[in-house]
């Protein structure tokens, strides 16, 4: 709570804060982002000076609870349970429902990049990598999906039918996993998210799910999707084995996609089904 020399009175600080707020807003309104950034930094400094002067020393940010496991272990566990490419949000929900603790969301965004860097520096130094799902047509990284490097390539490739097929197969796996014990409320909530979006999966009252009924309904719809989806994935996987190097197979091929697309725009898996 020490005042810096030349510290201003709370009144002066308040006036200054009001001025700075107005200037930041004006700068933003006129599109001058650079100036807005500078002003914003000064505003934050002035605000914290006001806090110190008026309200006393800060209490500090409460420590964020950290899980016992590293994030990549947590993600690996959730993905292993799901058995299919999944978005970070789903991974987080699955972990929260079935495992102790939670995955800090902010850490998930940079995960794939970190893993790729690690692989490129020392290939196969780790037992597994968390890597991309590949699009079936261009073998490029699919947006926002994570997979595990040890999965067969077919499992890590996504075609047009895969999002639904994977959603259904994950539902089956989670239901079976939950069915082994008495599902707690967190698991019920997660299963409800699946059941409410699968025809015939809701049998009881709103919000409660019978895992066996969920698995059965999911399997029924999965039957429609499984074979065409698998064919598409297998043919793309064969192509990937043939054309991609190790790193590309894990993290997808951006360069090749661009090159190929530039030369022959209407090519690659679009028609082989």
């Amino acid at each position: 709570m020490s005042r810096s020399p030349g510290a201003s009175s709370p009144d002066e600080l308040e006036t200054r804060i009001a001025e700075l707020r107005a200037s930041v807003r004006r700068a933003m309104a006129s599109g001058d982002r650079q100036k807005a950034r500078e002003l914003r930094a000064e505003l934050r400094r002035t605000e914290s000076a006001w806090d110190d002067a008026v309200l006393g020393g800060g209490s500090g940010d409460p420590e964020e609870g950290r899980g016992l496991l590293p994030v990549r272990e947590q993600v690996h566990q959730a993905l292993t349970l799901l058995g299919a490419p999944a978005a970070p949000k789903l991974i987080g929900s699955v972990y929260a429902a079935f495992f102790p603790g939670a995955i800090p969301g902010s850490r998930l965004t940079s995960l794939r990049r970190d893993e790729e860097r690690s692989f490129r520096t020392a290939p196969y130094a780790r037992p597994y990598y968390l890597c991309a799902a590949l699009t079936a047509d261009l073998l490029a990284p699919a947006r926002g999906l994570l997979t595990v490097s040890t999965w067969p390539l077919e499992q890590r490739i996504v075609g047009p039918l895969s999002p639904r097929a994977d959603f259904l197969s994950s539902a089956v796996r989670l239901a079976e996993h939950a069915g082994r014990g008495a599902p707690d409320p967190g698991v019920q909530r997660l299963l409800w998210r699946f059941a409410s979006n699968i025809p015939g999966a809701v049998t009881g009252t709103v919000g409660t799910v019978d895992p066996a009924a969920l698995a059965e309904a999911a399997r029924a719809e999965l039957d429609v999707h499984r074979d065409p989806d698998r064919r598409r994935r297998e043919s793309a996987a064969a192509r990937a084995r043939e054309r991609l190097d190790d790193a590309e197979r894990l993290f997808g091929s951006r360069l090749r996609a661009l090159r190929a697309a530039g030369r022959r725009p209407a090519t690659n898996g679009e028609t082989d089904r």
Binding site: T135, L138, L139, A140, P141, A142, R143, G252, S253, R254, A257, L258, A261
Partner: peptide, 8 residues
């Protein structure tokens, strides 16, 4: 997904 074609 037609928003991005192979990251492009």
């Amino acid at each position: 997904d037609l928003e991005v074609v192979a990251g492009n």
